[in-house]
């Protein structure tokens, strides 16, 4: 595997901008988090206040770690897409962030290069450099929490597409003419398997079934049913919960078969809240996806849980810097330069 840097004296700032929380960490070139800070996002404060708060957090974290500013190479930022060229373009989880030049803001305020990347892409890079995908040059990362995001690593580099918005795996249609998705399409994976869709489907099934289920009791009310309630009910062998879950793994498994057929990866790494379902998730999803995918592609593929856990936001953002520096280094040392030697 190619690692761009191993010099642990150099550090990277990782910034994770989420819809509910902000996180900033100081990360070594080998992916260790030296120090970190977290705080609620408070979206209503608007981009200017929030960005200023983040810059303060960057300075606090650095001070807390007792590290000289000159040892920090660059800042990597992960944020919900769509994004383009370092500019945040109205992501659904950050209302009011319309055309905000986030990368420029950080590089100006902190006096160092700053790179902005879609948070799922950042997490994919994090898992590739430091997590379950170490050494796997062709891998797909899928995060399933409230929503679904994806990132694809191909030949050891992040696959960005024409304007940096590739791998919207949550918006792969899995059920033709199926449930409405907020993106305007129908039958997207997101409309079935994201945490919020899972909860919504469970609530609908409870109301429609007229069948005894533990779900409302466990949650307190039908309205309060969440993905966590579903997991609790599954552990208590609730039949309705089983039906919902079977449908979910069937759809997710088929979606992953399509992902395998499109990207021919060696690994599909699943992260986010859904991995709390453990083998209840990985057992059937692995079986269904590998059965449905084309044989020569299924043969080399596996589906495994992410390894970075709660630090994935920070470590992923830091890994964005590594991906960029790797490119700079390749150019400097001459993939193309030596052609003209």
């Amino acid at each position: 595997m190619k690692r761009a840097f191993t010099d642990s004296d150099q550090l990277v700032l990782g910034v994770d901008i989420g819809g509910t929380k902000l996180a900033v960490g100081l990360v070594t070139m080998s992916g260790q988090v030296v120090a970190q800070e977290r705080t609620p996002t408070q979206v209503k404060d608007g981009p200017e206040v929030i960005l200023t708060r983040l810059v303060t957090l960057c300075r606090q974290v650095t001070a807390k770690a007792g590290v000289g500013w000159n040892r920090i190479v660059a800042t990597g930022i992960g944020c919900g897409g769509p994004l383009e060229n370092g500019v945040v373009k109205s992501p659904p989880n950050l209302p009011g962030w319309d055309d905000i030049p986030v990368a420029e803001f950080f590089s100006h305020e902190l006096g160092m290069p700053a790179y902005l990347e879609n948070d799922a892409n950042a997490a994919a890079l994090g898992e590739y450099f430091f997590g379950a995908g170490r050494g796997v040059a062709n891998m797909v990362y899928l995060t399933i929490s409230t929503g679904i995001g994806g990132g694809v690593i191909t030949n050891g580099r992040l696959y960005r597409g024409e304007n940096g918005n590739a791998a919207e795996i949550g918006h792969m249609v899995v059920v033709h003419g199926g449930r409405e998705c907020y993106c305007g399409n129908r039958g997207c994976l997101e409309a079935y398997a994201s945490g919020s869709s899972l909860a919504r489907r469970a609530r609908e099934k409870v109301l429609a079934a007229g069948q005894a289920s533990l779900l409302p009791g466990l949650a307190g009310s039908v309205e309060a049913i969440t993905a966590e309630t579903l997991l609790q009910a599954l552990e208590l062998q609730d039949p309705l919960a089983h039906d919902i879950w079977n449908e979910t793994v069937n759809i997710l498994g088929s979606g992953l078969a399509s992902v395998i057929n499109l990207f021919n990866p060696r690994l599909v790494i699943l992260g986010g809240g859904i991995i709390n379902f453990g083998e209840r998730l990985f057992g059937p999803v692995r079986r269904i996806a590998l059965q449905r995918a084309m044989k020569p592609l299924a043969k080399v593929a596996d589906i495994v849980p992410a390894q970075l856990g709660a630090e994935v936001g920070i470590v992923g953002a830091a890994a964005v810097v590594l991906d960029k520096l790797q490119l700079l280094r390749t150019v400097r040392e001459g993939t193309y330069g030596s052609f003209y030697a």
């Binding site: 899995v174 033709h176 057929n261 499109l262 449905r292 044989k295 020569p296």
Partner: peptide, 26 residues
């Protein structure tokens, strides 16, 4: 090409979960 030269099998994206059997087995 992906990891063993098979990437881009767009004909084998699942569009209809319970649709007819395909030549690929899916």
């Amino acid at each position: 090409r992906g990891s063993n030269t098979g990437a881009g099998e767009i004909g084998h994206i699942t569009i209809d979960l319970d649709g007819p059997r395909c030549s690929c087995g899916n």
